[in-house]
Design a protein around this nucleic acid. Sequence first.
DNA 1: GTGAAAGCGCTAACAC
DNA 2: GTGTTAGCGCTTTCAC
Lengths: 345, 345
Amino acid sequence: MNDHPIPPRRPMTLRDVSEASGVSEMTVSRVLRNRGDVSAATRERVLTAAKELGYVPNKIAGALASSRVNLVAVIIPSLSNMVFPEVLSGITDVLDQTHLQPVVGVTNYRPEREEKVIYEMLSWRPSGVIIAGIEHNDTCRRMLRAADVPVVEIMDVDGEPVDSVVGISQRRAGRLMAEAILKQGFEQIGFLGTQMPLDHRARKRFEGFTDTLAKAGREVVDQEFYSGGSALKKGREMTRTILERSPDLDFLYYSNDMIGAGGLLWCLEQGIEIPQRLGLAGFNGTELLDGLPRKLATMDAGRLATGREAAKIIAARADGSLTEPRRLEIEPKIEFGDTLRRYKP
Amino acid sequence: MNDHPIPPRRPMTLRDVSEASGVSEMTVSRVLRNRGDVSAATRERVLTAAKELGYVPNKIAGALASSRVNLVAVIIPSLSNMVFPEVLSGITDVLDQTHLQPVVGVTNYRPEREEKVIYEMLSWRPSGVIIAGIEHNDTCRRMLRAADVPVVEIMDVDGEPVDSVVGISQRRAGRLMAEAILKQGFEQIGFLGTQMPLDHRARKRFEGFTDTLAKAGREVVDQEFYSGGSALKKGREMTRTILERSPDLDFLYYSNDMIGAGGLLWCLEQGIEIPQRLGLAGFNGTELLDGLPRKLATMDAGRLATGREAAKIIAARADGSLTEPRRLEIEPKIEFGDTLRRYKP
DNA sequence: GTGAAAGCGCTAACAC
DNA sequence: GTGTTAGCGCTTTCAC
């Protein structure tokens, strides 16, 4: 064995590859980035050397030198609500075909977290920002605008976007559901939702919903809210509670599919006749609903499409093929399932 | 209005804050990072200037200069399986109390994607890597080792870790469940799982399961696999299929809670007596199970704890308070629910 | 096709 | 307490 003193391990650099291959740093860089003309021979030598050394380029240095970063900041309120991972899938689908890479930040629906996450993300100078919601405080909006980076706000188009926006109108979603419910002759309507004053999307949906009822001379007769715990279980409990308190209700509108599913299971166990005696509807168009004993009515919010379109906009802005802000409203689609339609169409 | 020509917008730098506040760049840097002594007065001036300009520091330059990056790479196979978001929650809980920040990469269970994601992540020189699974190909292992960064492999301790490792033994989890099932006198056991040769954790669990059955002179009598679609619905369909084919089965072991829940719902609808006629068990300890008509037996894999502990290790390595690799085996815990226990304990 | 020089926007180290 | 100098590891630009 040799017993030369081992010098302290220095992180590997281009220079190491350069020395190992006997080619200038500059040419090594060209090979590694596939830029400019390099002879096949040199190319080969560089690639071999890099591979043997296990060289991984330092993107920090690269980004600083070129002021180009292939990161796209994706800022969402939560990961435990399946809705956001689904949007992320859409984003990933599209970005995977580009050189761009999503980086996820989670705000937990807290504005001060949102500020922090935006700040942190922007400090890495990403090529674009995709952010859930269109309601952000002044600090957030100012940062986003000042960053001079393409921004796409998603999942809510009711408001003034910073730049581009893709998603459904939550108000319209609430309205459409209210109209469908009224059309089926339901009259005593209850609402069940999350206790989350900062979920602007749920709030707007509810507003659209109640406004429409009001125009028809109706109102939400009773309400029930929850926070934390198993949504399925909470849906069950809330449904029992609200029906005990207001036995005359003939429709329950849930702010998400999971609590709706819990409610549906409970109602079926009680032998409640659905939808004749009691109609039900959730929101989101979750895959899960397909496996229930009856299919809960819901509204597909086009999450996958939203993610895809948002990513396309960022990609197009990044490669210069798009320069103007876009506004893309996606149409929410009612799925009647087995719990909303009383009369045959 | 003034009509001076507007110079092309140059991204803002420390220098701008320096000029605006009349303080040297270095001191501005000190204030912004809370490093070293700065007089209250200068401090104030700098902060005001920075805020007014809406300055967001360039972390790329900072990271290059200091060779310190506050990013922790988190590499997981999927976001659509709730398991991983939950681990992420644990990680976030802990990292939120440090200056470290998680960055998520998704591999879709594909080794070539894993290679790419690791490479991309490492090229940003993160302070640590948390990666799902302990099975990685040689390229991946070499990169991780060469990166000279703390690495924590999670959710599977059966194998040789690159560095630290936190999680349950999947083989042991399979074994424990097999033992519990046998103890309850079940004899004709069927298995239902995902069609995913690359999910090593599911594979090891299954191996531990069948090995234990074998030692008791038993075997898995029939199996059924699925891929894609609504897991709840698939669970339903697979359960019907397997029971039609093998009506003598008296126990169904599902590789995850969601298909188990689908199976449970179907069995209840069929009026199958559970668990006397047929026992059921899933895997994961998903919150969802709490809302079902009966609680499915399952096994808590300690996902939150796994995430937390992994993050703690990274944080401790990063601040120098830990220097050795750690190995932390978490004990999986059977939850009997209402579908596994035939005899009163 | 290849190389040398300059500098991206910060911070470490040291001087004052 | 504050400022100066010299890089961090790449890429841009330009020369050859």
